[in-house]
């Protein structure tokens, strides 16, 4: 699937990432009675009406489509200040600081799945939706400006702390290509020819600083 949908060879297509995100667990409140399910990834259930339980997201969505459960929105997906990490604060922190805020690794995919399938189960859906959208935009802008630092100094690696799966996947083809080209152009035979004897040793030992993507 990746080969057909992604001509430029990013590692995953968006749909594949969505598939991976479906393995994250989420809390549901079933309204049916069912024995525990035994999967390779673990046992889920038993399912009793009105007793909350943890299941993988794909199972939650499948049950939801059949009207057999309500999905409880995850803690991070809330507007009011009751839990520690709520979206309003995350958005503010995201705007203020250079760092990326910790969000679930698959937050883009999870929120899309929930918005598609469990619209009525999420409190303040419009607010949540626009907040997540804003957070995503701020983060993407940060990535864009952050990537400019590759060109300033020698860079061999980027540390992408707290970057989510989707974000990393989007920048991957661009960043790897850029780093490759920079590496080739600043390799020792292109640059250091003039004073190779004196400089070769320390250069091999110290492979240059690792750049951090706006995370200092």
């Amino acid at each position: 699937m990746a080969a057909t949908s992604e001509p430029h060879g990013s590692a995953f297509s968006a749909a594949e990432l969505e598939f991976l995100a479906e393995d994250e667990t989420i809390e549901i409140v079933p309204n049916l009675r069912m024995d525990p399910l035994n999967f390779i990834s673990g046992d889920f259930g038993p399912f009793r009406p009105q007793i909350a339980t943890q299941v993988p997201l794909w199972l939650a969505v499948a049950l939801k489509k059949r009207g057999k459960c309500t999905i409880r929105a995850p803690d991070w997906m809330s507007v009011d200040a009751f839990p520690i990490e709520n979206l309003t604060q995350v958005l503010e922190a995201e705007r203020d600081s250079e760092k990326f805020q910790p969000l679930p690794f698959h937050y883009v995919e999870i929120s899309r799945l929930l918005f598609d399938h469990a619209r009525e189960d999420i409190p303040d859906i419009y607010m949540v939706r626009s907040l997540i959208e804003d957070i995503k935009d701020v983060r993407f802008h940060k990535i864009g400006t952050g990537l400019e630092i590759i060109s300033k100094e020698r860079t061999y690696a980027l540390r992408l702390k707290n970057l989510s799966a989707m974000e990393a996947n989007i920048v991957r083809p661009f960043v790897t290509k850029a780093l490759e080209t920079f590496y080739k152009l600043s390799s020792s035979e292109m640059i250091q020819e003039s004073d190779h004897i004196s400089n070769r040793q320390p250069q091999a030992a110290n492979r240059g600083p690792r750049r951090q993507l706006k995370d200092r």
Partner: peptide, 22 residues
Amino acid sequence: EEAKLYEAGQSSIAAFKKWRMG
């Protein structure tokens, strides 16, 4: 070389947008 780099960035963003639109 630059055009390739450009297309790599552009196409992954386009793919993402397409996915998000549903």
